[in-house]
């Protein structure tokens, strides 16, 4: 196996504007089965990086390769299906928790190659310390930590190649945070060729496989 085959996602001098119009340039590599940890002070553009990687925002310059193929070679819908951005506060749709988990399966791009698997959903819920009975609960009544875990399950259910996770531990107590970290590691190990880009603070990523870190630093270059 060559070194290139180990690279799952390659970010080459990707420049983008942050929410406060600062230009950030990032280069980093995410290895297959590994975690790329994005760090930096708040407001530096970590969320914007994830959204740019998900092609939900347009970059200024630079390119990203997935398994050696430039991102422009993938239709955006297919890209977002494979490189899935899970927001810090996941969107909660009207309905029960299960209806929320099922929601992506209404989309043509998802239902064309995947079917909703209720047993899998329940299993994942239990792994994340959400009792089965919660599936029938109105999703809008979940606490911050519960809905963040529901978002993580929903993200995993659609079977992406890369998960872009924005502070998945932010709203969690220690026990739930530990469960989420184990969950992410297990997901990475389950099928070869997966990867996670994780925005989180130092000290939260202990035990993560093939961890690389990219530190975003503010650049005093107003646009």
């Amino acid at each position: 196996m060559t070194m290139d085959m180990m690279k799952l996602l390659e970010i080459n001098s990707l420049s983008y504007l942050t929410g406060n119009s600062r230009r950030i340039t990032v280069s980093a590599v995410l290895e297959e089965g590994g975690v790329l940890n994005v760090r930096g002070p708040s407001g530096v553009g970590k969320t914007t990086l994830l959204r740019t990687l998900a092609r939900l925002r347009e970059p200024l310059e630079g390119t990203v390769l997935l398994k050696g193929k430039p991102w422009t070679g993938y239709p955006p819908v297919q890209w977002r299906r494979m490189v899935h951005y899970a927001a810090q506060k996941p969107v909660v749709f009207d309905g029960t928790v299960e209806e929320n988990l099922r929601k992506p399966f209404e989309l043509a791009a998802v239902k064309s190659d995947l079917e909703y698997n209720r047993e899998k959903a329940y299993r994942l819920m239990e792994q994340l310390l959400l009792p089965r009975g919660m599936a029938e609960q109105d999703a809008r009544t979940l606490s911050g930590g519960e809905s963040s875990r529901m978002g993580l399950i929903r993200a995993v259910m659609v079977d992406p190649v890369i998960l872009l996770l924005d502070e998945p531990l932010a709203a969690l107590d220690n026990r739930a945070a530990l469960a989420v970290l184990e969950f992410i590691s297990a997901w990475l190990g389950e099928v070869p060729g997966r990867g996670v880009v994780l925005v989180s603070h130092a000290g939260e990523t202990g035990g993560m496989p093939r961890l690389t870190t990219v530190e975003l630093e503010p650049v005093e270059e107003g646009i």
Binding site: L56, Q78, R80, H84, A86, V91, A109, V158
Partner: peptide, 16 residues
Amino acid sequence: TGEVEGLLAFGATPWE
């Protein structure tokens, strides 16, 4: 916006 973008992130078309 959160809902629209959330759906896009799952591979929704703009219309979806």
